[in-house]
Simulated assay, not measured.
Amino acid sequence: MYVLAEEIVGRDLTILGLFQHADIVVKSIIIGLLAASLVCWAMAFEKFIRVWLLNREIRVLETNSSKGTLPASRSNGLVRAVGEAARTEWNEGVHDGTSGEIRDRLEIAMRAASKRQLKNIEQGLPFLATLGSAAPFIGLFGTVWGIMNSFTAIAQSKDTSLAVVAPGIAEALFATAVGLAAAIPAVIFYNQITVALGRASDRATPAIVGLARSLSRSGVGSAN
């Protein structure tokens, strides 16, 4: 399609203007990246809340571990999962055996319950990792596509002045900017959540070990 040089020069160079004059492929890429970015922020907010709740429950486990008592089943998170795992293991006959065997069985059951809780929180993290690694390349594809169309329009206008070339290039580069804007927070959120979950796991393990040791001596029934 023939594009006049005067039309190119007079284009709106604001963010909204760049989006409106972009090619349909570039627009689709920008919309997709913006939608993925919104999902990224919503998911990160939800994960940070769940990590905060997890750390609070780990403090309860640490308190019960120091007291040698089994956590009460009042919540639906880590505390309840670990407590129910210990009670179930004890009711199935884990109390038959030496103190060391009882401790090992209780510890294995409670660790498995703790690991399942952590796995539940980890769901969705691959999306953040994928977005962080793929978004820049998706934005770059939009840029390359936009530049191709821009050069075609420049050739049709038969004017290579900077005033004619710059708007089309700016529209194309907008896709890369959106890709980076989506990727950078995703990488930061992924790293922060992963590190937070690792630290939470490191805190939960000693608490579970201490709790299993105490319960193997006093019994789950007496620790309620």
Rank of each mutant, 00 (worst) to 15 (best):
S37V: 04
G142D: 03
L61K: 06
A42G: 09
Y2R: 09
S157K: 00
T14H: 05
N120I: 08
R87H: 08
L78C: 05
I121Q: 01
G210W: 10
V144C: 01
V209G: 04
V94D: 12
R50W: 11
R50N: 11
A129W: 03
P136I: 13
K67F: 10
W41S: 08
S73R: 15
R217I: 15
A135K: 03
R103N: 11
A153I: 04
S37R: 01
V26L: 04
V195Y: 07
A72L: 13
N120T: 10
A182M: 01
I169Q: 02
H21C: 11
H95A: 14
M43L: 14
L215W: 07
G139W: 00
G124P: 04
I121T: 04
Q123Y: 12
A170M: 08
H95W: 13
A129C: 05
G32L: 00
P185E: 07
E101S: 09
R203W: 07
S218Y: 08
L173R: 00
L13M: 12
G10D: 11
G77C: 07
W145R: 06
I154K: 00
E89G: 03
K119F: 12
L211Y: 05
E122G: 06
I188Q: 07
K115P: 01
L70H: 02
A5T: 01
G17K: 05
P136W: 10
T14G: 11
Q156S: 12
A112N: 12
A175R: 01
L128K: 03
G132T: 05
A44K: 04
K67T: 09
S214A: 15
I154S: 04
E92H: 13
A134C: 09
R87C: 07
L33R: 02
T194N: 13
E107F: 13
A42S: 10
V51N: 05
A183F: 03
S37M: 06
P206N: 08
S216Q: 03
R56F: 06
Q20L: 14
A44C: 06
N191T: 08
F45C: 10
V9H: 03
F141M: 07
E84Y: 03
T176W: 01
I121V: 07
V60L: 10
T88I: 08
A212T: 02
T14F: 05
S150L: 00
L18D: 01
G179W: 01
A196C: 06
S133D: 05
N224I: 14
E171G: 11
K67N: 09
W90Q: 08
G132N: 03
G168V: 00
A181Y: 04
V165H: 02
N191F: 09
L70K: 05
V79G: 06
A166L: 06
S28D: 02
L211R: 07
K158E: 13
A72V: 12
I30Y: 06
H95M: 11
A72H: 13
R217Q: 13
T205F: 08
R11V: 07
